[in-house]
Amino acid sequence: MDVFMKGLSKAKEGVVAAAEKTKQGVAEAAGKTKEGVLYVGSKTKEGVVHGVATVAEKTKEQVTNVGGAVVTGVTAVAQKTVEGAGSIAAATGFVKKDQLGKNEEGAPQEGILEDMPVDPDNEAYEMPSEEGYQDYEPEA
């Protein structure tokens, strides 16, 4: 019985440690998101679009440190934060509304985080759909 109880105690310690790591990862992701939003706020009209992409990228980098179902929630929060940063930029006159959601080359930025393969159960990952990809044929 002692062996059984000791095993359960060790398992509990492992769960607590994993929860603490997840909590730490979420806190880091939130900190990076805040950094990115402050970065966007300090940019001029020309830099705002690039700044919004930076927020998304920093958040995406930190999301990889967070495991399990938390990833889905962090990704949703990050996307809403990026959308909010863009709205703030438009409201303050840093950028025109028609410039939001495009990178410096004018290509749409939507789907940055949505296409990231995420499995809350950590069982399997699927690649994003290939609808947006084109076949590449090298020139002879």
Rank of each mutant, 00 (worst) to 15 (best):
L113D: 15
D135S: 07
T22D: 00
E46R: 09
K21T: 04
G67N: 05
V16I: 15
A53T: 08
N103Y: 07
M1N: 00
E57Y: 06
G36T: 12
Q134P: 12
K12M: 14
E126G: 07
D135I: 10
A11W: 14
V63S: 01
D2G: 01
K12R: 14
K45S: 04
E28S: 12
E131C: 13
A76C: 12
K96M: 13
K32A: 14
G14M: 13
G73M: 12
A89Y: 13
E104K: 05
E28H: 04
A140V: 06
V49C: 11
K102C: 09
T44G: 04
L38Q: 06
A90K: 07
L8Q: 00
S42V: 12
V26M: 15
T44Y: 11
K102S: 06
D121Q: 15
Q24N: 12
V48I: 11
V66N: 01
S9L: 14
M1D: 00
V48Q: 00
S9G: 10
E13W: 09
K6T: 03
V118D: 12
V95M: 02
M1F: 00
G14K: 12
E110V: 07
E13K: 14
Y125A: 04
Y136D: 01
T64W: 03
A53F: 12
M5Y: 02
V16A: 07
Q134M: 11
D121M: 05
A53D: 02
E137T: 11
Q24D: 04
L8S: 00
F94N: 04
K45N: 01
G51H: 05
G132H: 06
V118F: 09
K43M: 14
H50S: 06
Q79I: 09
T54L: 13
K32T: 03
G47A: 11
N103T: 08
E61W: 15
Q24H: 14
V16W: 11
H50I: 03
A11G: 01
P120G: 07
E61V: 08
V15R: 00
K97S: 06
N65T: 09
G68L: 10
V26S: 00
M5F: 08
V63E: 01
E131S: 14
E105Q: 08
E126L: 10
L8K: 00
G93F: 03
K80T: 04
A78Q: 03
V77C: 09
E28D: 04
K96T: 13
E57I: 10
G86I: 08
P120D: 06
V70P: 01
D135Y: 10
K21A: 15
E104L: 09
A85L: 14
V3N: 04
L100Y: 12
V77D: 02
V16P: 00
V55L: 15
A78H: 04
G25F: 15
E61N: 12
G14D: 02
T72Y: 07
P117L: 05
A30I: 07
M1K: 00
V95I: 12
V15M: 12
L38V: 08
Q24Y: 07
A19Y: 15
T72K: 10
T64G: 07
A11M: 15
V71S: 03
E46G: 02
E46M: 15
Q99P: 05
T75N: 09
E20N: 03
V37H: 00
E105I: 01
A30H: 02
E123C: 15
G132L: 12
T59G: 08
T64E: 07
E104D: 07
K60A: 01
E123I: 05
G7K: 06
A107S: 06
V66F: 12
Q99C: 10
V71E: 02
Y125F: 15
E114Q: 12
G25P: 00
G36P: 00
A11P: 00
E57Q: 10
P138S: 05
E114P: 06
A11S: 03
D119Y: 07
A90I: 02
E130G: 11
Y39I: 08
G68H: 03
Y125V: 11
Y136T: 05
S129L: 06
K96H: 06
G67M: 12
K10H: 04
A27P: 00
G73D: 01
I112E: 06
E35D: 13
E137M: 06
E57H: 09
L38C: 10
A124D: 13
V52F: 03
L38E: 02
P117E: 02
T59W: 09
T81R: 03
V3L: 07
A90D: 07
V82E: 02
D119H: 15
P108N: 08
Y39K: 09
H50G: 04
P108K: 08
K58F: 13
L8E: 00
